[in-house]
């Protein structure tokens, strides 16, 4: 008798689960997973083949990849990875002391400081890039300030070079690094640091041997949150980089939005994703961290 009731309950729960889960799961599969497969399909011409490919009678082809991998693309790819790594390192080095100060020395201003850290994180990336442009451009605020105060007589040309892009990238991504750093520093109990000091460690030593290792999850999360999007960044180079600063993100953008060459776009995007994923795996393996979710 009780067996039967249990069985009935089990069936009911199963039906409920199916009802509850089907909508989000179906949405996720259709609009997140399948598009990835579709993109790979487009990159080999299985989906949305070009006219030329159809004339040749090819169902699947690696031609798009072979066309995409050329010296210009490799150069752009190298440059993008370089700028992403440089951005990530600079953000970590610059952001760590800030996160440290807010977490440990904020005192009664801590809540205000946290809000100051969070706000840039919430402001549209596009707007902040635009703000940087309106600050640095030849007709911009900085130049007009310097001219009006008589420090310079002609506007300085501060944008359209790699340094401007790097500055913009650091400005754009710093909040993405600082927030996870702060979150992990805040969790560290001061007791450990005090213990190290009581046992005779200098403040520097206590920091290097206690605080820094304990903040590793924040360093890893900050690295990933900065590196992953910055590798495909195209708004900052577009606004601050000028015609010579062209990155993978710009290439993907122009392949899709300007050239509307889906197969080319899909193949360079697939290569870019594969490299980024490989980079992340290598990094996680190197730092010995599991991707904790």
């Amino acid at each position: 008798m009780s067996e039967k009731i249990l069985e009935k309950i089990r069936h009911r729960r199963k039906a409920q689960l199916l009802l509850i889960l089907s909508l989000p799961l179906a949405f996720y599969i259709i609009y997140f997973l399948i598009p990835f497969i579709a993109a790979v399909g487009v990159s080999v011409g299985l989906i949305l083949p070009r006219e030329v490919q159809l004339q040749r009678g090819e169902v699947i082809t690696l031609r798009y990849y072979m066309d995409a991998i050329n010296p210009i693309f490799l150069k752009v790819l190298g440059k993008s990875l370089y700028i992403a790594v440089a951005t990530t390192v600079l953000c970590l080095v610059l952001g760590y002391p800030l996160a440290y100060y807010v977490a440990f020395k904020g005192g009664r201003y801590r809540n205000v400081l946290i809000l100051l850290v969070i706000v840039p994180f919430w402001v549209t990336f596009l707007l902040r890039a635009y703000a940087m442009l309106s600050l640095l451009s030849p007709e911009g605020v900085l130049n007009s300030f310097l001219i009006n105060t008589g420090i310079i007589s002609k506007p300085l040309f501060l944008i359209y070079n790699e340094n401007a892009v790097l500055l913009g990238m650091v400005y754009g991504y710093l909040p993405f690094t600082v927030l996870p750093l702060y979150a992990s520093l805040e969790k560290i109990s001061r007791v450990y640091v005090e213990a190290a000091k009581v046992l005779g460690a200098s403040p520097v030593r206590a920091f290097l041997h206690v605080t820094l290792p304990l903040s590793k999850p924040g360093l890893v999360a900050g690295t990933l949150l900065t590196f992953i999007p910055s590798a495909g960044e195209f708004i900052i180079p577009e606004f601050l980089g000028g015609p010579n600063e062209f990155f993978v993100g710009n290439m993907i953008y122009s392949a899709f939005i300007e050239a509307q060459n889906w197969n080319w776009g899909a193949s360079i995007a697939t290569i870019y994703i594969a490299i980024v994923i490989a980079g992340i795996m290598l990094y996680l393996k190197y730092v010995g961290e599991e991707l904790r979710i």
């Binding site: 598009p35 495909g232 195209f234 993100g249």
Partner: peptide
């Protein structure tokens, strides 16, 4: 990355 989700969805 947003650009990856964007382009896969577009395709």
């Amino acid at each position: 990355p947003e650009i990856v989700e964007a382009l896969t969805l577009m395709l």
